[in-house]
Design a binder for these strands. Structure first.
Length: 491
RNA sequence: GGUCCCAUCGUCUAGUGGCCUAGGACGUCGGCCUCUCACGCCGAAAACACGGGUUCGAGUCCCGUUGGGACCA
């Protein structure tokens, strides 16, 4: 049994988008599942559009997602000579030929065919040129492309796609396609096939947009005497209008980098992406890395395209709601030590980190994270919603102030009384704080909710959050008292 | 225009001829819990694109139509 070798081969012409990440993920999963090799190949033959910056973004994105490659990155631009040599060999063995037809000639033929309502296909004018004529024209300096020779007989190329099943393409429906341009540059079709041979790729797992190219590539493999790899074409990810996703149209929301910025846990994104067009017969939706590797199979890939459900007009959902939900669930489900590194990084970035959180204040810090983790959607929220827990410098939400502090003018009297009572407490724990507040409410004959909500807003600036007594204990007596007094200005 | 691919709730999907009165998840709405919010739990609305076959029986097989997508031009 041959070692499984798969590759992710992006063009470095922009950013790493979620569709690309999904392709990389499926390849990575397949490699891991079969103890194979995951190869990264940068298809940078389009020198004008390829950028260093883009290469970096691809590498960074994959690294962040945790999709480590075993080999590479290889650069296609460094192998152009191999592609040209392959074209040369195809000519020598009679599988390809030089074509001197000019663009004008071809355009004229196409136009004529159109007018006559006949399907246009290259007519093979140069197919039977004798070697003498070819040599003669080359001496004249006439430019030529190299075309692949499609068998002129009835028959077809067939292959079994792991996702789409048996696929056949009639020779008659394929024209003698170009494999080398007149300036000597190989076409993608040729380059990627040759590179896959060079990299000894066993399974080509790529987007469904490659399906149409596959028969041609198989013809190339066969002509060169190579065994074609196994193909698995995956459905595409489209937007809600069923168009291909692109940064130009959708903005950063389709880039992997953006999810890092916005506080995603990398594996949560992977899990979400895995489920966009792949599923298991059971109802599982959450997979650990190992579970997903174990469950993954090419056969589970959907044949229909799936839609990335992002609606730019919905202010509540800055990306697909399912992705947000999944991230939130991961934040509340994971072991604390699995999410704390991300939280630390975020707090450090905004200057809220205290090195004591790793040492003497670790227990306290863990409590806080535990307290708010079920209420956040992204890692970013720990620094925004969570700010009052890590800093005295926090904002009061206008709505919260109105609703909880300015609801009853008597709070102006109640709150100082409460502060005084709390201050006299010897032990400041869940029980004593709760008793104190409930007692004072009884004495004043007011609903506990009034005071509880008021205090929550006083000490956090927010109207929503963890249970009040947990908050108070976490904050400690001094901060609690201080913040209650300070908030009186707003009452 | 040619070739190919696809079609189940708004979205992701289960479903491979009878377990389908079509299941799950997200989202939406309602309820419980409750000091708020979230979590959790309970519940509701919500889909087999259409038309023909085949079959005792079709979401499931075949053909056509429509719609969408990809590739080539």
């Amino acid at each position: 049994m041959n070692q499984v070798r798969v590759r992710f081969a992006p063009s470095p012409t922009g950013y790493l988008h979620i569709g690309g990440a999904r392709t990389a993920l499926y390849n990575w999963l397949f490699a891991r599942k079969h103890n194979g090799t995951f190869i990264l190949r940068i298809e940078d033959t389009d020198a004008e559009r390829s950028t260093e910056e883009s290469i970096k973004e691809i590498l960074d994105g994959l690294t962040w997602l945790g999709l480590a490659w075993d080999e590479g990155p290889y650069f296609q631009s460094k192998r152009i000579k191999d592609h040209q040599a392959a074209a040369e060999k195809l000519i020598e063995t009679g599988h390809a030929y030089k074509c001197f037809c000019t663009k004008e000639q071809l355009d004229a033929k196409r136009l004529k065919a159109q007018q006559a309502k006949i399907d246009y296909k290259y007519d093979g004018t140069c197919r039977a040129l004798s070697p003498d004529v070819v040599a003669q024209r080359e001496q004249q300096g006439l430019p030529s492309v190299v075309r692949f020779k499609i068998p002129q007989q009835s028959g077809c190329v067939a292959f079994d796609d792991k996702v789409y099943g048996h696929i056949e393409k009639q020779f008659d429906d394929i024209e003698d396609f170009v494999i080398l341009r007149s300036d000597g540059k190989p076409l993608y079709l040729l380059s990627s096939a040759i590179d896959d041979v060079t990299d000894r790729i066993t399974h080509v797992i790529r987007g469904q947009d490659g399906l149409g190219n596959t028969p041609k590539q198989i013809l190339i493999y066969n002509a060169l005497g190579y065994t074609p790899p196994i193909f698995a074409h995956m459905s595409l990810t489209l937007d809600t209008r069923k168009a291909k996703i692109s940064k130009r149209k959708h903005g950063e929301v389709v880039t992997v980098a953006y999810y890092k910025e916005r506080g995603f846990i990398p594996w949560a994104l992977c899990n979400f992406l895995a489920l966009l067009g792949w599923s298991t017969p059971d109802d599982r939706e959450f997979f650990s890395r190992e579970e997903l590797i174990d469950a993954f199979s090419l056969e589970g890939i959907a044949r229909h395209n799936s839609i990335f459900n992002y609606n730019p007009d919905d202010p509540n959902n800055w990306t697909d709601p399912k992705a947000i939900n999944m991230n939130a669930r991961y934040i509340s489900m994971l072991r604390l030590d699995e999410i704390i590194p991300y939280v630390r990084e975020e707090l450090q970035a905004v200057g809220l980190w205290d090195s004591a959180y790793d040492n003497e204040k670790k227990l306290w810090f863990d409590t806080i994270i535990e307290l708010i983790r079920t209420r956040v959607h992204t890692i970013k929220d720990f620094a925004t919603k969570g700010r009052p827990y890590f800093s005295d410098d926090f904002l009061f939400e206008e709505k919260a102030v109105k609703k909880n502090l300015q609801k009853d003018a008597n709070l102006k009297n109640y709150l100082p009384q409460l502060a005084e009572k709390l201050d006299s407490l010897d032990t400041f724990d869940l029980k004593t704080t709760e008793n104190t507040i409930r007692e004072i409410c009884e004495e004043l004959t007011i609903k506990p909710g009034l005071l509880i909500n008021a205090v929550r807003t006083a000490v956090t600036g927010q109207s929503a959050g963890p249970g009040l007594f947990e908050i108070l204990v976490a904050l400690g007596k001094q901060k609690t008292i201080h913040r209650i007094h300070k908030a009186l200005d707003l009452v």
